[in-house]
Design a binder for these strands. Structure first.
Lengths: 155, 155
DNA sequence: GCTTGACCTCAACTTAGCTTGAGGTTGCAT
DNA sequence: ATGCAACCTCAAGCTAAGTTGAGGTCAAGC
């Protein structure tokens, strides 16, 4: 049986339990376990099989929340997080890099939203709210139909 | 057994079948039945229990598609549509009214998205991506927790 | 009158993002 | 050494927005 205190003397205080992570992020314990299942978190385990998180995981979870707020799905978020180093705390530059990539996605989303709204204005204004004429229904603007299940919001 | 041709002589041609509505809107037949279940459509029935839609339901479905694209859920969309008259074709003014109301929701959404993105920029820039300091986590900005189930995107 | 495609209902399944509950274990304080 | 909260796993359930399939009916052309 081993405890979470490695040879190089990393103090136990650097690790936090799932309950503490939950308190600091406002995310439910069950959700944190769910995120792990989805590959968003990779905590270590204590001798008794309890999850032990790095302090930087608080930031990681924060990032997940922000990204969700911006409309990204967990799978997309995981792709972004994959750019971060495993095990060690990410540097500021690491974070900047992935947030730059994300910014582009967000900008595209905002642009699309703006455009759609403007078209709505036009269509309602001119009374053409019908499929045959309305610009809103150009094929390249349609929602992607990738198999069953719910469609992505704001695709 | 009666057919859909009322005493006042409304021509049958004014009504369309579910298959035709599906073709004109690009929405699957199963989805149209689902929308009905959710109260978004209220078709009449033929003598043989088949759905008969008003021509204006094409526009109604178009509106649903646009609103979805703008990030609204079916329940929200239904609330908007509740402002339309039952049975008769809505006028242009009817449509303008509800789309104005919707525009406000959309604008709010875009504003929130923009603000969140800008805060992300700041937070990443200054390295403060942590719950205690970061503006992104002011309480009034948090996702609402209304019971179980998935949280609304961009709430 | 018969066939065929479009339609009907109802139940079960899908994905995303979780929560809830049952039944059992850990870890820390006294 | 004991008690209790916090932890563990695994299974089932929830909502949204639909799809898929089984088993049966309707309507229209030949």
């Amino acid at each position: 049986m081993w405890k979470i205190c490695w040879g190089n003397g990393v103090p136990t205080a650097n690790f936090i339990s799932i309950g503490q992570l939950a308190k600091r992020t406002g995310v439910a314990v069950s959700a944190l376990r769910f995120y792990e299942e989805k590959g968003l978190l990779n905590p270590l385990r204590s001798g008794g099989n309890q999850r032990r998180y790095l302090r930087s995981d608080i930031r990681r979870v924060s990032f997940v929340l922000i990204a969700q707020k911006l409309g990204l799905g967990l799978a997309e978020i995981e792709e972004h997080l994959a750019g971060l180093p495993e095990g060690r705390n990410p540097t500021l530059e690491d974070w900047r890099k992935i947030s730059r990539a994300m910014r582009e996605q967000i900008d595209a989303r905002i642009t699309l939203l703006n455009r759609t709204r403007n078209q709505l204005d036009q269509c309602i204004g001119c009374g053409c709210l019908s499929l045959t004429k309305c610009q809103l229904y150009n094929k390249d603007d349609k929602l992607g139909l990738k198999g069953p299940g719910p469609r992505a919001v704001l695709d």
